[in-house]
Design a protein around this nucleic acid. Sequence first.
RNA 1: GGAGAGAUGACCGAGAGGCCGAAGGUGCUCGCCUGCUAAGCGAGUGUACGGCUUAAACCCGUACCGAGGGUUCGAAUCCCUCUCUCUCCGCCA
Length: 422
Amino acid sequence: MLDPKLIREKTDVVMESLRKRGSVFDLEKLIRLDELRRELIRRVEAMKNQRNVTSDEIARLKKSGVEAREQIEQLRGLGKEIQKGEQELKEVEEQWEFLSLEIPNIPHDSVPVGTGEEQNVVVRTWGEKPRPDFEPAAHWDLGERLGILDFKRAAKITGSRFTLYKSHGALLERALINFMLDLHVREHGYTEVLPPFMVNRDSMTATGQLPKFEEELFKLSDPDYFLIPTAEVPVTNIFRDEILKEGDLPVKYVAYTPCFRKEAGAHGKDTRGLTRQHQFNKVELVKFSLPQDSYPELESLLLDAEDVLKKLSIHYRVSLLSTGDLGFSSAKTYDIEVWLPGQNIYREISSCSNFGDFQARRAKIRYKTGAGKTEFVHTLNGSGLAVGRTVMAVMENYQQVDGSIMVPEVLRPYMYGMNTIL
RNA sequence: GGAGAGAUGACCGAGAGGCCGAAGGUGCUCGCCUGCUAAGCGAGUGUACGGCUUAAACCCGUACCGAGGGUUCGAAUCCCUCUCUCUCCGCCA
């Protein structure tokens, strides 16, 4: 959500932001609703003021033993008037709020302007593409051959886009989760949290998944809950409707959770392997920061995520998303793309974003400054990393000519000391 | 699932139809005092929205005592519904 004052007073800035994103949002309609809303507020509040003033008078008269028939009569009709006005206001306010929740965040000045991912900018690469002297296989072939990934049976159990991990495959997934959590807790100073995997509608609205992206979410019908599409949702909502102390910031959390996504817009895309699943594991980094620190915090969060691949010695690149590719809630996003030799492509394995006060405003996460003012915090998050995609990166980058997979050095303590998956 | 208790400001906790935005305490801020890893004294300290303002502060107004409805001229206080927390019983991984 954007500051209503900003929309009202710096309309051109908001317009420009929408243009850069290629968004078709109806800003004029929102501004009209805002004006109508304020007009109604003025009317209703004037009536309420009259009610309060006269009510006080009644109280004074009664106290001094005088009947106040006339005044009571005067107010009898006013209550109904106020109710009518409030009803009208409520309707307008609901429309206004709904529309407000659908304006995307304003991109930061450092974000390149573009129409899509073609204008994303690669800001750095790390390591080099491996040059095996054999034709590297894709992880789905490796996984089925080794008996560690079973896509057919997962489809039987549930449906498409699910995976059954078996034996050392399951162990590798678990090892990566523990390795990542340990790294971020012990070396990067994050506090581990394990949140609920289902959340309510308010939480989904606070981080920006609702109301716009409901069709992407798995929904439970009985209680009105949703399966989380990322740990960002429950973890950011830890402080919803709270006022933090300035000295407590920044707060840094790391959480492992499964994630559930419908992938509604991706029919027929990435249908093979672990790339795009309805359920996948992710270790997520979340920060709450002072507004003035959030961009440096984004850089350090990105480095924390990159560190996982560095420790695993897997080649990757980092790109800065252009305005056309930027997520709805984000002001600035870096993607980390890992090299997959079996598919001969780079694939996103982490997305690190600064949301500015966009989520904090929706979630009402604030802090008190030394001067006693209450302000919105900035929220940030990034995958550290997507675990299923890391499994495929390990498999494809560490495969041997015989189809076995070497276990990266750092994972061996987490895998009973084994050095090869045969 | 059954029975009961509760939900008040950053936190704890009074309050039971008009004098309550809400006592008292803690915390925090400022000042004084003292002087040493602390204490004492005094003052101040909610949020949101609307108006005023070039903008802000100030000021004015409105709302908010879990959420939503109702009764009433008037509700933190009375009634109804819901949510959550706690205790006991039952059941259960």
